[in-house]
Amino acid sequence: MNNILITSAGQRVSLVRAFQKEIRKVDKTGKVFTVDLNPILAPACHVSDGSKEICRVTDADYISKLLEICKNWEIKIIIPTIDTELIVLAENRELLLQNGIIPIISSEDFITKCRDKRIINEFFQENNIDIPQEVDKENVTFPMFIKPYDGSLSKDTFLIREASELTEYHFQNPKLMFMEYIDHDVYDEYTVDTYYDKNGELKCIVPRKRIFIRAGEVNKGVTSKNEIINYVKDNLSKIEGAVGCLTMQFFFHPIEKRIIAIEINSRFGGGYPLSYLAGANYPEWIIKEYIFNEEIPYFEDWEDNLLMLRYDDEVLVHNYEE
């Protein structure tokens, strides 16, 4: 069976539907299942072909429960969607492979780099990628931006415009990095959906401008064939250990053309459906690569200037009981 499992499905309705559409093009019996901490309250679990509750990824028996679910559903491919799952799946890659299950994840080493902003900054610099300049804690300049090296969802981030806004917490917390502030009124922010094949070779680059963000996820965005494409292609055409969809964050100065890298998330981002609808069909490529062992050619024929405007929709669950 060529069944697919999407973990921590939550609100990833579009991602589930994309994989359902693509697997059924090549295998009408193929199904897309989901797991979540609370599947009854996860919309994506209601549009999938079946869902189950699973414990937190940090629980000791997470992998054993995941393995049991995969065996019951005859899962061929696992698609993770949140950062905390990545390292756990990478650490257990061989166990999953031994059971005929392929987790679409980067190597443990590369995931570790992505999870630590200090290390990923070193990675960017080694590959001639510009980053925000570090601010000396003993000689601060304003404005500046403070963020934790292992943070996510904008937690513990601070825009500091003057000295009076600094506190002892900022200096005493060893996780906080003092960085150059990139002015959002001057720079455009882009998420770049890239696809790397199983050999770490770059196959697609889709910059999408983040016009409006809601709850940390793009709500309005537009694809753009701009200078970021060649910048990524020239400097990151191969990444050792990179696999599948990687979402890279950049700031771009539209006049000076300065491109500044912020981070890499080695998974599908919440805004990926825009790239999919523009023609960058990563679900299809994953199926071709990992189920049918096909090679993926470089692809750049996706739709430019495609605007996505998201809105709220409803999933109704009848006879719900708490």
Rank of each mutant, 00 (worst) to 15 (best):
175 K>S: 14
176 L>T: 13
176 L>S: 10
178 F>A: 07
178 F>E: 00
178 F>V: 05
179 M>T: 12
183 D>P: 04
186 V>L: 14
189 E>H: 09
189 E>F: 09
190 Y>A: 01
191 T>D: 09
192 V>G: 08
193 D>A: 11
194 T>Y: 04
195 Y>E: 03
196 Y>S: 08
196 Y>A: 08
198 K>M: 07
199 N>C: 15
202 L>D: 02
205 I>Y: 05
205 I>C: 11
206 V>A: 06
210 R>W: 01
210 R>I: 08
213 I>R: 06
213 I>N: 06
215 A>S: 14
215 A>I: 14
217 E>S: 11
217 E>P: 03
218 V>C: 10
218 V>R: 00
219 N>W: 09
220 K>Y: 10
222 V>G: 00
222 V>P: 00
225 K>Y: 05
226 N>R: 02
227 E>H: 07
227 E>Y: 09
228 I>M: 13
230 N>W: 02
230 N>H: 07
231 Y>I: 12
235 N>I: 12
237 S>N: 10
237 S>K: 04
239 I>N: 03
240 E>W: 11
241 G>P: 08
242 A>N: 08
243 V>Y: 09
243 V>I: 15
244 G>H: 04
245 C>H: 08
246 L>N: 06
248 M>R: 00
249 Q>K: 14
250 F>T: 05
252 F>W: 07
254 P>L: 02
254 P>N: 07
254 P>Y: 01
254 P>K: 02
255 I>Q: 12
257 K>F: 04
258 R>H: 15
258 R>G: 05
258 R>A: 14
259 I>C: 03
259 I>N: 00
260 I>F: 05
265 N>H: 07
265 N>P: 12
265 N>Y: 12
266 S>L: 05
268 F>P: 06
269 G>N: 09
272 Y>D: 09
272 Y>G: 06
276 Y>E: 05
276 Y>T: 04
276 Y>C: 06
276 Y>P: 02
277 L>T: 10
278 A>D: 07
279 G>V: 10
279 G>C: 14
284 E>W: 01
285 W>I: 03
287 I>H: 05
288 K>Q: 15
